[in-house]
Simulated assay, not measured.
Amino acid sequence: MAESPFHTQNHLKCPICLTLLKNPVTTSCGHSFCMDCIKRCWDVDFYRGVYSCPTCRTTFNQRPALSRSTVLADILEGMKQKAPARPVTCDVCKGIKVKAIQSCLVCMASYCQAHVRPHYESKAFKKHKLVKASPNLQHQICPHHHKALEVYCYNDQKCICVVCMGNQHSGHKTVSAAAEMAKKQEELKIKKRDFIQKTTDWKKEVHQCKKAVISFKRSAQAAVENSDRIFTEIIRSIQNIQAEVREKIRAQENKEVRDAESHIQRLEEDIVKLQKENSKVEPLLCTENHVYFFKLQKYYCFYSGVVPYNSSRDVNTLTFQRVTQSLSELKSQLDEVCEEHMREILYEVADVQIFQDDDLSEEEEEVVDAGLW
Rank of each mutant, 00 (worst) to 15 (best):
G305L: 02
Q81W: 00
A179G: 10
G30P: 06
Q157E: 12
K129I: 13
K276C: 08
K189N: 12
F294T: 08
N136A: 03
S32V: 00
R68L: 14
M35R: 12
I141W: 01
V213K: 11
F46M: 11
K280I: 07
L66V: 03
N310L: 01
V25H: 01
E348K: 15
K298S: 13
K191Y: 07
C14V: 03
D74W: 00
F320L: 10
L330Y: 12
A243R: 06
Q185Y: 12
A212R: 04
A220L: 12
H290I: 12
K276L: 09
V213T: 10
S122A: 06
L318A: 11
E268A: 09
E340I: 02
A65Q: 15
D45F: 04
L327I: 14
A260F: 13
A220G: 07
A220D: 09
Q242K: 10
L105H: 01
G78T: 05
A350L: 00
L188W: 07
T232G: 14
W42L: 04
E344P: 01
D359Y: 09
E77M: 06
K129V: 11
Y300R: 05
N254V: 11
H119K: 02
M108P: 01
I214R: 09
T27A: 05
V175D: 15
E277D: 06
V315H: 08
K173Q: 15
I214H: 14
Y152V: 03
V88I: 02
A350Y: 05
Y309D: 11
P15F: 03
L72E: 02
L296R: 08
C142W: 05
Q113G: 04
Q353P: 04
S279N: 10
M342C: 10
D228M: 09
A85R: 08
Q62Y: 11
V98Q: 02
V224W: 05
R229I: 09
T199R: 15
C14S: 02
A85K: 12
N278C: 12
H341Y: 11
F216L: 00
S332M: 08
Q62W: 05
N167V: 04
C338Y: 11
V367G: 01
Q168Y: 10
E269D: 13
T58K: 10
T199K: 15
E364R: 05
C159K: 00
E121W: 03
R218I: 09
T8I: 15
L274C: 07
E348Q: 13
K82D: 14
H31T: 04
I238V: 13
H146Q: 15
D91R: 05
C34M: 03
V349D: 09
Y152T: 03
E247L: 01
N155V: 07
S332P: 06
V88E: 04
K183N: 15
K147R: 10
D357L: 09
Q239T: 09
L149S: 02
V71P: 00
R313V: 13
D45G: 00
N240T: 15
